[in-house]
Simulated assay, not measured.
Amino acid sequence: MKYFITTLIALLTSVSIWSQGGDSLALTPPMGWNSWNKFGCNVSETMIKDMVDAMVESGMRDAGYEYVVIDDCWQVGRDSLGNIIPDPERFPSGMSALADYIHAQGLKFGIYSCAGSKTCQDRPGSRGYQFQDARTYASWGVDYLKYDWCYDEGQDAHAAYKTMSDALKECGRPIVFSICEWGESEPWKWGKEVGHLWRTTADIRDCYQCTFDWGGLGVLDIIDKQVDLWKYAGPGHWNDPDMLEVGNGGMTVDEYKTHFSMWAMMAAPLMAGNDIREMDASTKEILTNNDVIGVNQDVKGEQARKFMDMGEYEIWAKPLSNGEVAVCFLNRSNFEWNLDYDWSKQTMYFVKDVSIRKNVYKVYDLWEHKEVGKTNEKLKKTIPPHGVLMVRLHL
């Protein structure tokens, strides 16, 4: 009887912890840093600690970046009891000690695994070990799990991800669950009850517009795949168009501004993927733009919709709290867009709290950080090739 009562208390405590944490996890899109885009398999305890220090010193932590996520290649095998083993050469102090270091800096610890028998880099996956791995992660102090989809061996994605979701709910620690099956089984239709965010496309590449035979996509190609997904996003459940490439050298400054602006508009998780230790001024300016981040982190939690499509030119709008709206003018073309926009001629029909016909709103440029007009006058701006004009309307 004593064992039964103890077990029951432990179970109820676990459920309570998840319920409390689950209700408060990812109420705005998660922000952080992930090792994969820049470092691939070249991960280590020393590098992660350096990145943690750089997140603090650069101001990224203060700008809202919270999670430090080690992607694939941290694991090398399982012991005789089936417990996952971190690479002892690259992580000599162990994961608990690394988590302590991250937490001491006011940040949170994220880790990677896979729903298949192996990860995408042929390391041990979690299939068959979901509950054991979840308990291990909880004991290490993990706060975020990215869960990939290689070597799936014919599994049903919904069922496979629900198994790990159930394991996390019983592990005794609230952990943000990032579903990463590349959008192949339309996870936006079932992900809300399973995880906190779900990938919507194949992996991002560090280019404005490009496609690869294996499925990699450029920024513009990924944006195009998000257009009809706005209805599935909201507090605690987000469409994830993949991590940020800002600062990795494959795009121009204007293209990186477009990348960051549109991810903010789409209420996407903002997971930086650059070497924070070596950021140049423009990269830091982009990643720590509090005005743009504020749009992404708005508590209303709505994803932007494209309400005007003029081919090479698009206009997106994102309803915000406090009766405001963010508007992004996207220039897809290779030439400047000489914008001459009359606010009174267009209706953002889905933005219920903003009426341009009834009120005059100030127009605040989120990249220039200043007022650039009012809605009772035309907005005239030159938008560079592959660039954006991102503004916020407020009374």
Score class of each variant (00 low, 15 high):
Glu285Pro: 00
Gln303Lys: 14
Gly94Trp: 04
Ala317Arg: 01
Asp87Thr: 02
Asp71Val: 11
Asp152Ser: 09
Asp62Tyr: 06
His386Gln: 13
His158Ala: 08
Gly301Arg: 04
Gly273Ile: 07
Tyr129Asn: 08
Leu168Gln: 07
Met95Tyr: 06
Gln132Met: 11
Pro29His: 09
Tyr349Met: 08
Glu324Leu: 02
Asp50Met: 06
Val292Cys: 05
Met47Thr: 11
Pro319Gly: 02
Thr201Glu: 05
Lys378Met: 05
Asp213Tyr: 07
Leu27Ile: 12
Phe91Trp: 06
Lys358Thr: 14
Ser321Cys: 03
Lys146Ala: 14
Gln105Trp: 00
Ile9Ala: 13
Asp242Pro: 00
Leu145Thr: 00
Glu312Lys: 10
Val76Ile: 15
Gln75Tyr: 15
Thr283Ala: 14
Ala268Asn: 11
Ile315Phe: 08
Arg357Thr: 14
Gly128Arg: 12
Asp203Arg: 14
Lys378Ser: 12
Lys380Ile: 15
Val360Met: 07
Met1Gln: 11
Met266Thr: 08
Gln105Asp: 08
Ile383Lys: 03
Val56Lys: 12
Ser321Ala: 11
Lys284Asn: 08
Gly94Leu: 04
Gly323Lys: 13
Gly218Thr: 10
Pro187Tyr: 07
Leu217Met: 15
Ser80Thr: 06
Tyr129Glu: 07
Thr28Met: 07
Ala167His: 02
Lys284Gln: 09
Gly82Tyr: 10
Ala115Phe: 01
Lys352Glu: 13
Thr375Phe: 02
Asp213His: 09
Ile276Ala: 09
Tyr137Ala: 12
Ala202Tyr: 15
Pro174Glu: 14
Leu330Phe: 14
Ser165Thr: 10
Lys189Asn: 12
Tyr101Val: 02
Pro187Leu: 09
Lys257Cys: 05
Val43Ser: 02
Trp36Ala: 08
Gly247Met: 04
Tyr129Pro: 00
Leu339Asp: 13
Val227Phe: 07
Ile276Glu: 04
Arg332Val: 04
Phe4His: 12
Val388Thr: 09
Phe335Gly: 10
Thr211Tyr: 08
Ile102Val: 15
Val372Leu: 07
Asp280Arg: 04
Phe4Glu: 13
Arg205Ser: 15
Cys180His: 12
Trp149Met: 05
Gln155Lys: 03
Leu287Phe: 03
Glu89Asn: 13
Leu220Gly: 00
Cys120Ile: 07
Trp36Val: 04
Asp309Ile: 01
His237Pro: 00
Thr283Gln: 02
Asp79Ile: 15
Asp342Gly: 11
Leu366Ala: 10
Ala138Tyr: 04
Lys257Ser: 01
Met308Leu: 14
Glu371Ala: 07
Ala159Cys: 01
Val194Cys: 03
Gly32Ala: 12
Asp166Glu: 14
Ala54Tyr: 14
Asp365Gly: 06
Lys374His: 06
Pro269Val: 07
Phe131His: 06
Leu27Asp: 03
Ile286Trp: 01
Val253Met: 06
Pro124Asn: 15
Arg127Ile: 01
Lys378Val: 10
Arg277Leu: 15
Glu45Val: 01
Ser117Leu: 08
Ser19Trp: 14
Pro92Gln: 07
Lys358Glu: 15
Ile293Glu: 00
Ala202Glu: 10
Lys300Val: 03
Ser165Lys: 05
Glu377Trp: 06
Ser96Thr: 15
Asp72Pro: 02
Ile276Val: 15
